[in-house]
Design a protein around this nucleic acid. Structure first.
Length: 376
RNA sequence: GGGAGUGUCGCAUAGUGGCUAUUGCAGCAGACUGUAAAUCUGUCACCUCACGGUAUCGCUGGUUCGAGUCCAGCCACUCCCA
């Protein structure tokens, strides 16, 4: 994998580039739909490719390891083969589950013991194990095993955790060096900056991560409940330290506004469950702002889902129809809403890229931020 | 005509003498950020922005310190026998 920086916006810190992988090229800035269990919930792979126009999707090491398990994944010839997705895949290492499944795990220097929510069995994730599993899954980009700290997070805890994540990173790198890809194409390891919302910790972490010389770098531990201002200031600080010639991935972010602001600060890659999860819960992100399609007020609104939408569902289906489908708990409601939201996110970053390249990003971004944050 | 049974906030339910009438569904809203989430939370008799106030268990009486609960009459519905 290698990154080709095409242009940096002189009026902001936004960048446009290309990430070349063995499964194809990704245009940045990019949003990556989350497909934890080998599926972006509610969307067919063909729709993901042709309607959403996803260029890369995520999988999750912890969840795929628990089910279907490594035997199946290896037997299938890797995750791409297993799920019928020929474009790039990125896997999260399980570091987020250290945060989200805090009730059922125990952290030590050696690694993390998780208790399965399926059968109560115990599973130990070390940095080495996380790499081995990701070798078997076979994603193009794999993440270092880290601890995603919560918010708020005590300074001393954040500091100790960050140093442990750094030590774990060294072990991940060693394990990468000691192993080979299993399916004939290369895999790139991205390390992750931590440090909670503390500038001195973020600076130290970013410098440590930058020094590893990885082909791409990630910012973790944000969008866990902290104010947006903290997310932006930490992102800004970290981006100023991470190398400019490598892609920067802001993990778990975010709302359309978060993403535009992140792009303006120099972030190249984003992922978030928000467009897919919220779609299932009736929340639509549109060019005019967010709407809750479950609200009674849409029952007689026969206008298209999103007049400015680029996906076919935006023009073919009306708000009243989607309102009806979701109230009736029809599966099609989830499919339409998810395709819409993801297509909206992908169109947003595509337009951002175009604006960066033609020099109109900054003013366009400021206009969009005003519109997209609205509730209609 | 005779007999039996049932009436609880839109629907369905719990409640047979004691504190604020239970729960589910539907309805109306809200939340969701590297997915244990097609989930969760609130609200859901009436008035009030709210604090708070006023009611209510088919109807009317009665017994009782106290009635959704016991008694009587009436009304409605269901079932059985003619």
């Amino acid at each position: 994998m290698h990154f080709e920086l095409k242009h940096t916006d002189p009026q902001s810190k936004a960048r446009a580039g290309l990430i070349h992988t063995d499964h194809g090229t990704i245009e940045t800035p990019i949003f990556m739909p989350v497909g934890t269990q080998g599926t972006v919930k509610g969307v067919h792979q063909q729709e993901l490719r042709d309607d959403v126009e996803a260029q890369i999707i995520l999988g999750n090491t912890f969840h795929l390891y628990l089910r279907p398990g490594l035997e199946v994944l290896e037997g299938a010839g890797g995750l791409h083969q297993f799920i019928g997705w020929e474009r790039p895949i990125l896997t999260d290492s399980g570091g987020y589950q250290v945060y989200s499944l805090a009730k059922s795990r125990k952290i030590t220097e050696e690694g993390v013991r998780f208790q399965s929510h399926h059968d109560g069995s115990y599973h130990f994730f070390s940095p080495e194990r996380a790499i081995d599993i990701q070798r078997t899954i076979g994603a193009d980009i794999i993440m270092a095993f880290d601890e995603c700290t919560p918010y708020p997070c005590d300074y001393n805890y954040a500091k100790r955790s960050m140093h442990m994540t750094h030590r774990w990173l060294k072990r991940c790198i060693s394990q990468m060096d000691a192993t080979e890809p299993k399916y004939g194409y290369s895999q790139a390891l991205f390390p992750i900056v931590q440090g909670s919302v503390y500038p001195d910790l973020r600076k130290e972490s970013a410098e440590f991560i930058a020094a590893q010389g990885a082909v791409g770098n990630a910012i973790g531990g944000l969008s866990v409940g902290e104010p947006d201002e903290d997310m932006y200031s930490m992102t800004d600080l970290v981006c100023s330290i991470l190398p400019a010639d490598k892609p920067r991935y802001l993990m778990g972010v975010g709302t359309p506004v978060n993403i535009l602001e992140g792009i303006a600060l120099g972030v190249d890659m984003f992922d978030c469950v928000m467009p897919s999860r919220n779609a299932r819960h009736g929340m639509l992100f549109t060019s005019e702002g967010t709407i809750n399609i479950k609200n009674q007020k849409w029952s007689m609104d026969f206008s298209p889902l999103d007049t400015n939408g680029t996906a076919y569902v935006d023009q073919v289906y009306t708000k009243a129809y989607l309102h009806h489908l979701i109230k009736a708990k029809e599966n099609l409601a989830i499919q339409i809403a998810t395709i819409h939201n993801l297509a909206f996110y992908l169109a947003l970053v595509k337009e951002a890229r175009r604006r960066i390249l033609d020099g109109t990003f900054r003013t366009w971004k400021d206009e969009q931020v005003k519109k997209l944050g609205r509730r209609i």
